[in-house]
Each structure stands twice: as structure tokens, then as C-alpha cells.
Amino acid sequence: MNINGEFIAFFIFSVLAIGGAVFMINLTRVMHMALALAFTFFSIAGLYVLLDAPFLAVIQILIYTGAVSILMIFGIMLTKHKDEDKVAPFTVHKLLSLLGVGGFLAIVIWIIYRNPFFSTGEPQAAAFKVTDLGKAMFKTYMIPFEVTSILLLVALIGAIVLAKREEKK
């Protein structure tokens, strides 16, 4: 195994991404969960940089780490939450779930190592460029793109209205 700087950076970013996802699942406060999710998104952007995809890394930071995380934090701040920090006891159900997830992980890893997904031939470079993506997005798919943005705006306004309605009760 060749250990170099790229391998170390990949290891650090992957551990940070997995750690952020685990914290997101296990934390009890919703604000902490949103911050852990933003941390995971930022780590994935680092992985994109290592894959020599700087455009995807910037988009990951702008859209997911920035916009989606901030939108989630606004949604959390606009809704009312009960501060109940009850720690659930460790039950047999949790143990069986942990064993099931561990078994599923073992099967997935076994399948991945038994069946190679990539051919051993010479990889071919794709001729697709970012300019082609921009042309497709703003010429071919302009209407679906705008409809999606309107749908997201309506969802945000609906969340604010629901939060204000709950506050009056």
C-alpha cells in the first residue's frame, strides 16, 4: 500500500464525513444535528477536491453546506421545540438493530470485494465540460429548473406559515 499525502487527506475527509453523519444521527438537539450535517457536506466537498473535481466541490459548498444547511437552521429557528433531553435506555431492539446493520455492512463489503466494479482497461476521458452543463441547464431544462425553484420557494413559505400558526396556538 502506497501511503502518500493524497491517501492521508482522503482518510481524514472520509473519517470526518462519516463522523459528521454518525453525529447527525445520534445527537439529540436539532441545531446540533444541522451543524453535523453541514460538517458532513463540507467534508464531502474536500473529497471532491481530491477527485480533481473543483467545480463540484464549490457547488457542494455553495448549495449544500451553505444554502441547505442555512435553510435547515432557519426552519429549526422558526419552529417551536420541546427541550426534552431524555436518554433512552439500551434495549434489545437497539441491539438487534445494531446487529442487523452490522450484518448488512459485512454483506455489502463482501460483495464489493468479490465483484470488481471497474474494468482493468485504460480509462477514457469524458468529453463533457461544465459549459455543456450550463447550456443544458439554461437552454434544454430551463422550465423544469425554474419550476423547481418556485416549488422550493413555496415550500419555504409554507413552512414559515405553519410555524407561525403553531406559535399562535
Rank of each mutant, 00 (worst) to 15 (best):
M1C: 02
N2Y: 11
F10R: 01
I12M: 14
F13W: 09
S14F: 12
S14D: 10
S14A: 13
L16N: 13
I18N: 03
G19A: 03
G19F: 05
A21K: 00
N26S: 13
L27S: 10
T28V: 04
R29N: 05
R29E: 11
V30F: 13
V30C: 09
M31A: 07
H32I: 03
M33W: 00
M33E: 01
A36S: 14
A36M: 05
A36C: 08
L37P: 03
A38M: 15
T40F: 01
T40I: 00
F41C: 02
F42R: 00
F42I: 01
F42M: 03
F42V: 01
A45K: 04
V49L: 15
L50V: 02
L50T: 04
D52W: 03
P54D: 10
F55L: 12
L56A: 13
A57T: 09
A57L: 10
V58N: 01
I61W: 06
I63M: 08
G66W: 04
S69W: 01
L71T: 13
M72Y: 05
G75W: 07
T79M: 15
D83S: 15
E84A: 03
D85T: 03
A88Y: 09
P89A: 11
F90Y: 04
T91A: 08
K94H: 09
L95P: 04
S97F: 05
G100L: 14
V101M: 11
A106S: 09
A106C: 09
I107M: 15
V108R: 09
W110Q: 07
Y113R: 05
N115C: 07
P116I: 01
F117G: 08
F118R: 07
F118H: 04
S119D: 14
G121D: 09
G121S: 09
P123W: 06
A127C: 01
F128H: 11
V130T: 14
V130Q: 15
D132V: 02
L133Y: 12
L133A: 09
L133E: 05
K135N: 08
A136M: 10
F138P: 06
F138S: 04
T140A: 06
P144W: 02
T148F: 13
L151W: 06
L152E: 06
L153K: 01
V154P: 00
A155C: 06
L162C: 12
R165L: 14
E166H: 11
E166I: 03
K168Q: 12
